[in-house]
C-alpha cells in the first residue's frame, strides 16, 4: 500500500526538521511551477538533482515515479504540438507542428520532473507522521493535518478490508469480465468498503473521545530546532530568491 521507500535513511536531508523541509518544498515547487523563464526552471531542475543527490535517493526506487509522471507528459507531447496554434515549426505529413505547443510541452516536462525531484528529496525523506507533526508545528490547518495522519494510519486497513471482500468474492468463483455482473459486483465491493470505513471511522472517533480528544492531536515530540535546521532554512530561502530573481530577469 503506502510504501515509504525513501523515508528511512541517514542523509543530511533525512535528519532535517520536517517543518523546514515542508517550507523548502512548498516554496521551491511553487516558484518552479509559476516561473515563465527557461533559465529559472533549468536551475530548478538542477536544484532538484542536487537535493536528490544530497538525500542519496536510490535511482532504482526513483524510476517508477519518473515513469508515472512522464506518462502524463507524453500525452502532452502528443497533443500540444498539434493544438498549440501560432507559428508552425514544421510539418508531419500535412499536420502543422506548433512551435508554441512544443515549447509548452517542454516547459511542462522540465517543471514536472524538477518538482518531482524536489518533493521526493524533501518530503518523502520523512515518514508521513513526521510530516504531519511538521505541518502541525507550522500551524497548518488542524483538519488537514488530522486528515493526513488518519488517512495514513487507516488506508492500509481499508485496503485489507477491500482485499478480504474481494477474496470472498473470488472464493465463490467470481471471475471479472467485461459485463454487468462484474461491474455490479465491483460496485458492491467498493460500496461495502465505504460503509465499513465509515463505521470504522466512528469507532476510532469514539476511542479518541474516550481519551479526551478535543480536536487537535497533541504533539509529543519535544525535539527542538537545531542549528543545522536553520542552515537548511537559509539555504532554501536563498535558493528560492535565486530562482525568483532569475525568473524575473531572464
Amino acid at each position: 500500500m503506502i510504501e515509504e521507500r525513501f523515508a528511512l535513511g541517514s542523509s543530511l536531508l533525512h535528519r532535517t526538521d520536517p517543518s523546514v523541509k515542508i517550507i523548502g518544498a512548498t516554496v521551491l515547487a511553487i516558484i518552479i511551477a509559476i516561473s515563465q523563464s527557461m533559465a529559472a526552471i533549468l536551475i530548478g531542475l538542477g536544484m532538484g538533482i542536487a537535493l536528490a543527490l544530497l538525500a542519496r535517493l536510490s535511482p532504482r526506487a526513483l524510476w517508477p515515479r519518473f515513469a508515472a509522471v512522464n506518462l502524463f507528459c507524453l500525452f502532452l507531447w502528443v497533443t500540444l504540438p498539434l493544438t498549440g496554434g501560432g507559428e508552425a515549426m514544421g510539418h508531419i505529413w500535412s499536420m502543422a507542428i506548433s512551435r508554441k505547443g512544443v515549447m509548452l510541452a517542454l516547459y511542462v516536462t522540465i517543471k514536472t520532473n524538477a518538482i518531482l525531484l524536489v518533493l521526493t528529496a524533501l518530503l518523502a525523506t520523512s515518514p508521513v507522521h513526521h510530516i504531519g507533526r511538521g505541518m502541525q508545528r507550522l500551524g497548518i490547518s488542524t483538519k488537514l493535518t488530522l486528515l493526513l495522519l488518519t488517512s495514513y494510519r487507516y488506508l492500509n486497513l481499508i485496503h485489507q478490508e477491500f482485499k478480504r471482500l474481494q477474496r470472498a468474492a473470488e472464493l465463490r468463483c467470481f471471475d471479472p469480465r467485461t459485463n454487468i455482473h462484474t461491474y455490479r459486483t465491483y460496485s458492491y465491493l467498493v460500496g461495502m468498503t465505504f460503509v465499513r470505513s465509515w463505521e470504522r471511522s466512528r469507532r476510532v472517533h469514539n476511542a479518541m473521545l474516550m481519551r479526551g480528544f478535543n480536536g487537535t492531536f497533541p504533539v509529543l515530540d519535544t525535539t527542538t530546532f537545531r542549528r543545522r535546521d536553520l542552515y537548511f532554512l537559509l539555504l532554501f530561502t536563498a535558493s528560492a530568491l535565486v530562482l525568483a530573481a532569475v525568473s524575473l530577469t531572464w
Binding site: P127, V128, H129, L149, T150, Y152, R153, Y154, L157, R200, R203, V204, N206, A207, M208, F217
Partner: peptide, 9 residues
Amino acid sequence: NADDQLFSP
C-alpha cells in the same frame, strides 16, 4: 477491536 483504538503512528 484494538485497531480502532490505536490511531497514532
